[in-house]
């Protein structure tokens, strides 16, 4: 047994801050697993999703929720979805693979991304400074997911709640990502 132990570090060290009208928090236990749909395997994967998660295969831009409400499946592409759920370990891909077996191709994405949850009555006014897409509840209700670009960073956006959003961006630029969102909140308060 090696004498050395490895400890996990979140990209933003578990950042958490409250502002006037908005709060910002790193989602450190956000597990993300990419599931690619094999060519000709849509039916099989749909069936497996239904059987093990009670969820349907999401269309692009849609989110499909598992029956127990614990896992969201984001429609990221014609043959690709992301499963996101709370899980602190780096073995998330194995968990999904165990559930869906060989009906899909699985890739761990948890550490590829940093998740920031922004919430509060002023969060939309802050986000309209950096997010190009229409976040009005009618245009972007719960159950929608979108890829967009903000401040030169690719970002995945989804509505968590009436007044909260989950933003997911590449982990290597987590610092710049946080700075962009923080600056937006500071600029409107």
């Amino acid at each position: 047994m090696s004498d050395y132990k490895l400890t996990a570090l979140a990209a933003l060290d578990g950042y958490q801050k409250s502002f006037e009208g908005a709060a910002l928090e790193e989602q450190i236990d956000l597990a993300i697993v990419s599931i690619a749909v094999p060519l000709g395997g849509t039916e099989a994967l749909s069936k497996a999703l239904q059987e093990s998660y009670g969820a349907s295969l999401p269309k692009v831009g849609e989110i499909s929720l598992s029956k127990d409400g614990q896992t969201r499946f984001l429609g990221m592409g014609n043959d690709q979805m992301f499963a996101i759920f709370d899980h602190p370990g780096a073995d998330a891909a194995k968990l999904v693979a165990e559930n869906l077996k060989d009906t899909g191709y699985y890739t761990l994405q948890s550490d590829n991304w940093t998740g920031l949850k922004i919430s509060g009555p002023k969060c939309r006014r802050a986000l309209e400074r950096i997010i190009p897409i229409d976040l009005d509840p009618a245009a972007f209700p719960e159950g929608n997911v979108a890829r967009t670009v903000m401040e030169h960073l690719a970002v995945i956006v989804l509505r968590d709640d009436e007044n909260s959003f989950l933003l997911i961006a590449a982990s290597s630029s987590a610092g710049s990502f946080l700075h962009a969102v923080e600056t937006s909140i500071n600029n409107i308060t």
Partner: peptide
């Protein structure tokens, strides 16, 4: 049937090089 996704950011990668590289890793 082929699918791609980037994992550049998600995996830290270190080069361990030199005559003692294996001995170091074995620790």
């Amino acid at each position: 049937d082929v699918h791609l996704i980037s994992i550049t950011d998600g995996w830290a990668q270190l080069a361990v090089a030199g005559p003692n590289a294996r001995k170091l890793l074995q620790k």
